[in-house]
């Protein structure tokens, strides 16, 4: 009851830093609370992904290009005009497009841990800017796929109760950065004190 009182934290606390509760609510910008050092330290400037993510994306596009190429090769070796070589052409085309997209995607991808929300910008053809407020965070995951592990990368996934919840995932982080981001988001979500989430 005490810790959740809205009025108390605005009043000057007669106690030292060590006796104030570790969990504090995030400021609404209307008062001095927005300068609570805890939250301030956790937020940061816009961040880009690790450059190695390009490698992950290139390999992923190579895999899908190979699948398409094999399908095309099989299909065109049956049909009378054309032969299996079309599969190679398809592979080449899809792979080149995939590489270009991987490079562009890396250049566009950006995320920022803001004061009261996580902000993401991504997408090559369709540009998407997402704001995920901390009050709405349900849980935060870190996961590493096989290709990501080869490159020493990890993905942080932020879940909300929204129908597009799983959309908020940040790939291309080093495991340390991913863990750090996960911890920061966790603290921020607790500080934001989401109540019901729905």
């Amino acid at each position: 009851m005490d810790d959740t009182d809205g009025e108390r934290t605005t009043a000057a606390s007669p106690f030292g830093e060590e006796t104030t509760p570790a969990i504090r609510r995030v400021g609404d910008g209307s008062d001095a609370e927005s300068t609570v050092p805890d939250v301030e330290a956790l937020t940061g400037e816009p961040q880009t992904l690790e450059p190695a993510i390009r490698g992950v994306w290139v390999i992923q596009s190579a895999i899908s290009a190979a699948v398409l190429g094999v399908v095309a090769a099989v299909a065109f070796s049956v049909v009378s005009p054309g032969g299996a070589w079309i599969g190679g052409v398809v592979f080449g085309l899809v792979f080149v497009i995939g590489v270009v997209f991987s490079l562009l995607r890396y250049r566009i991808w950006m995320y920022q841990v803001r004061e009261d929300s996580l902000y993401l910008r991504r997408g090559v053809l369709t540009r998407v800017n997402t704001v995920a407020p901390y009050v709405r965070i349900q849980h935060v995951d870190t996961r590493r796929g096989p290709v990501e592990r080869v490159f020493g990368l990890a993905t942080t996934v932020v879940y909300t109760a929204g129908s597009r919840g799983a959309d908020v995932s940040i790939p291309g982080l080093t495991p340390e950065r991913a863990d750090d981001l996960q911890a920061r988001l966790k603290h921020l979500a607790i500080a934001a004190e989401g109540e019901d989430a729905v």
């Binding site: 369709t126 540009r127 998407v128 704001v131 407020p133 909300t160 597009r164 959309d167 729905v198």
Partner: peptide, 15 residues
Amino acid sequence: YRVQTVMDVQTVFQR
């Protein structure tokens, strides 16, 4: 109060 996430989306044609 019920908003979970907000985003703005821009396709090539919209851009």
